[in-house]
Computed example of a mutant assay.
Amino acid sequence: MVTAFNESKDLAYFASKSLLNACNYLVEKSNNSKLKFCNIYIPVIIIEGILYESFLKNNGTLSLSKVNYSTIANTKSFDDSASSILTIASSLKLNNFIKELRNNNDTFFDKFIELL
C-alpha cells in the first residue's frame, strides 16, 4: 500500500500502523479483562479521494482500476494471531461501503447466532 502522487510522508504506512496499534491495544485490553464477551474488530481506513487497486497480470503487465474499497493482509509475522486484514475505503462512496458492511455483518450474525 502506498500513497501515490504525493511527495510527503508515507501516510498510508502510518495510517495502517496506527490502526493496527489501536486494534492490538483493544484486543489486549479485552483479553486482560475478567469479563467474558466477544469483540469483533473491523479495521478500516477511510481516504479522501480516489482509491486505485493494482496487480500484476499473468503476462507481466500492470492492471490498474478505480475501486470503492480494497483490502490488504498485514502479516507482521507468520504467527496467525499477528496477521490482520485491513480495509481501505474511499470517502467518495462511503455510504455504499457502510451499507454493504452492515449487510455483511447482519448476514454473519444471522448465520452463526446459535454458535455464538
Score class of each variant (00 low, 15 high):
44 V>L: 02
57 K>F: 03
84 S>I: 11
1 M>C: 06
57 K>S: 11
69 Y>N: 10
12 A>C: 11
66 K>A: 06
107 T>W: 04
34 K>R: 09
41 Y>T: 00
78 F>Q: 04
50 I>N: 02
30 S>F: 15
41 Y>L: 04
54 S>K: 03
27 V>H: 06
85 I>G: 03
1 M>A: 07
58 N>K: 12
92 L>C: 08
22 A>N: 07
107 T>S: 13
63 S>M: 09
113 I>G: 01
18 S>D: 10
77 S>P: 08
33 S>A: 10
7 E>G: 11
62 L>C: 05
23 C>V: 15
44 V>H: 00
97 F>E: 01
55 F>C: 07
29 K>I: 02
113 I>E: 05
112 F>K: 00
61 T>A: 04
63 S>E: 10
83 S>N: 10
20 L>W: 05
55 F>R: 04
81 S>V: 13
41 Y>G: 01
26 L>N: 07
31 N>Y: 13
61 T>V: 08
97 F>P: 07
63 S>D: 06
14 F>Y: 15
94 L>F: 15
19 L>A: 04
91 S>D: 14
94 L>V: 09
111 K>T: 15
22 A>V: 09
98 I>C: 11
106 D>E: 12
84 S>T: 11
66 K>I: 14
38 C>E: 06
82 A>T: 10
52 Y>L: 11
48 E>W: 01
108 F>Y: 15
92 L>D: 12
18 S>T: 05
40 I>D: 02
92 L>P: 00
25 Y>K: 12
97 F>Y: 15
83 S>E: 08
16 S>M: 12
75 T>F: 07
39 N>E: 03
37 F>L: 12
47 I>D: 01
76 K>G: 15
10 D>H: 10
64 L>K: 13
29 K>H: 12
103 N>M: 05
92 L>N: 09
92 L>M: 11
65 S>W: 01
82 A>W: 08
85 I>L: 11
32 N>Y: 03
8 S>N: 08
71 T>E: 08
55 F>G: 02
83 S>C: 14
13 Y>R: 06
103 N>E: 07
101 L>A: 13
9 K>L: 15
52 Y>S: 03
33 S>R: 02
31 N>K: 13
67 V>K: 12
104 N>V: 07
72 I>Q: 03
